[in-house]
Computed example of a mutant assay.
Amino acid sequence: MATVTELKSALKEALEARGALAQLKARIRAEVFNALDDKSEPRPPLPRENLLINELIREYLEFNKYRYTASVLSAESGQPEVPLDRQFIANELNVVEDASASSVPLLYGLLSHFLSSGEKGGKVFLKSSGASEPMDRAVRPVGEARRPGVPETHPAGKSGAEPFVLQGGYR
């Protein structure tokens, strides 16, 4: 007859082999977070850049079936329950997709674009988005009115630059 320790070990190995143990742990973490989350405390406004970044990450997580991680991201960040429209996000990022690119998350296309531009020897110049600067100079949270005397910032992808085209072939 098997000992309790042997049974525990066999059960753990069986759950790990099927991938169920990781899912159970993620589900428990998500449920604990939801139970501890104080819904009565108002969340700070979600800046536009964070909204777009979170949505890119959520699309990636759901595509890869990391549903519990996606649910924790949504709950913790204050991201809207209903995902943003993919075409809206692409427009905000000034991205044009070909037909094959639309079958995978936008994040894959963005990564592929920058990896392939790096193969040509070029470097991409990144500058601060203003997200860490004082609120008067940063991108306004979604829905917040423009403050008098504060210069208008250009939303992501609306600077007049040419859109880049995302092509498939990265999965």
Rank of each mutant, 00 (worst) to 15 (best):
I53K: 01
I53W: 01
I53V: 10
N54A: 14
E55W: 14
L56R: 01
L56C: 09
I57W: 12
E59H: 03
L61F: 06
E62D: 15
E62V: 11
E62F: 02
N64W: 00
N64L: 11
N64G: 07
K65T: 06
K65C: 02
Y66T: 01
R67T: 13
Y68H: 09
Y68L: 09
T69P: 00
A70P: 06
S71C: 02
S71L: 04
S71K: 09
L73C: 01
L73Y: 07
S74T: 13
A75I: 07
A75C: 13
E76N: 08
E76I: 07
S77C: 00
G78M: 02
Q79E: 00
E81D: 10
V82R: 11
V82T: 14
P83S: 06
L84K: 03
L84C: 10
D85T: 10
D85P: 03
R86I: 15
R86W: 08
Q87M: 05
Q87D: 13
F88R: 15
F88C: 09
A90V: 02
N91K: 14
E92C: 08
E92H: 04
E92Y: 04
L93Y: 08
V95R: 04
V95I: 15
V95K: 09
D98F: 00
A99S: 14
S100C: 01
A101T: 10
S102G: 06
S103C: 05
S103K: 12
V104L: 12
P105F: 08
L107N: 08
Y108F: 14
Y108G: 00
G109K: 01
L110C: 06
L110F: 02
F114T: 12
L115W: 15
L115S: 15
S116I: 06
S116R: 11
S117M: 08
G118W: 13
E119A: 02
E119K: 03
V124Y: 14
V124D: 02
F125D: 05
F125E: 14
K127G: 13
A131I: 04
S132M: 15
E133N: 13
E133F: 15
E133Y: 15
P134R: 13
P134A: 14
M135K: 00
M135V: 10
D136G: 14
